[in-house]
Design a protein around this nucleic acid. Structure first.
Lengths: 154, 154
DNA sequence: TTGCTCCTCACGTCACGTGAGGTGGC
DNA sequence: TTGCTCCTCACGTCACGTGAGGTGGC
């Protein structure tokens, strides 16, 4: 799979992909590709990129943050790779715990963002409800009482 | 109130505030301030800036988007100002409807972001639950059955 | 051989960050 | 008068956007 197809599938430009490579977020820079030749990507590379982009979009992380997280993800993947060979349950427990810590960190970031959005949404909904009430009073609007109520600035 | 206090209160640098002014998001550029004199802000200016920053942070809007929204907000404020003088209920209905449309637009943006974050959080929680189960199996881990189950890569 | 896609510079842009050097108000 | 905060350039940075000119693979 070449860069054009990857770019189209994940919805970014080729420049972005090359830039992420420059910054060490994606492979194909370090892993011995001869300069000038076409970059080649696997399905796993696409998944990885998509994960990075989601983190970037939803959590507004800098590329430096992303690089850190990506490193942790990679460590986790490496641990998962060792799963089959790990002999003791104690060893496997360590693998599980490391993965858990990483996921919990991400979940924390996601939750705190979501809470802010919730608060914002609530505020907007309250304002809308107030306007809706005004609207009802105005369009019902023949009784003097309703008319008088409507004289207040919302 | 001067720029330093405003910057500290809303949590941005003075540069950001001046830049927003350059881009027409804040007053004090157009409203006849003599060049070289100190900028002066009111409590309302601070509220307005804070609103813009929230939109920027939570919805990742560009300054161009923000300018658009700010313009609509201003129109809304102008309408609210006309509330007292507006004579007919029909006139007031138009004011309410314009405000409603604006708020609904913002609410739409907020909700779509929140849905994406929800999906992400769910995904992370599912993964965590799976890991937790592994952990339980491993630390319970004396029975042969539990041991065998744990041999599977999570 | 001819397109098409890719390649590497390299300069431009957006949203600020960061001094440099100078002036205003308590 | 002395600090302190503010002012205006103006160049730097991050995360790309956008050509220019050239090469590789079906």
């Amino acid at each position: 799979m070449r860069i054009g197809e990857v770019a189209e599938r994940v919805g970014v430009t080729q420049r972005t992909i090359r830039y992420y490579e420059e910054r060490g977020l994606l492979g194909h820079g370090g892993d011995g590709r001869t300069k000038g030749t076409h970059r080649v990507y696997t399905e796993a590379d696409v998944a990885r990129l998509q994960e990075l982009l989601r983190l970037r979009d939803l959590l507004a992380l800098t590329l430096e943050d992303l690089a850190e997280l990506a490193e942790a993800e990679e460590a986790r993947a490496a641990l998962r790779g060792e799963w089959e060979e790990s002999t003791s349950d104690a060893q496997r427990l360590r693998i599980v715990d490391a993965s858990t810590a990483l996921l919990e960190q991400q979940l924390g970031l996601v939750r705190s963002r979501r809470e802010k959005l919730d608060a914002f949404a609530d505020e907007l909904e309250t304002k809308l409800a107030r306007l809706q009430q005004r609207r009802d009073e105005l369009s019902a609007g023949s009784g003097t009482r309703a008319r008088r109520a409507a004289r207040t600035n919302p």
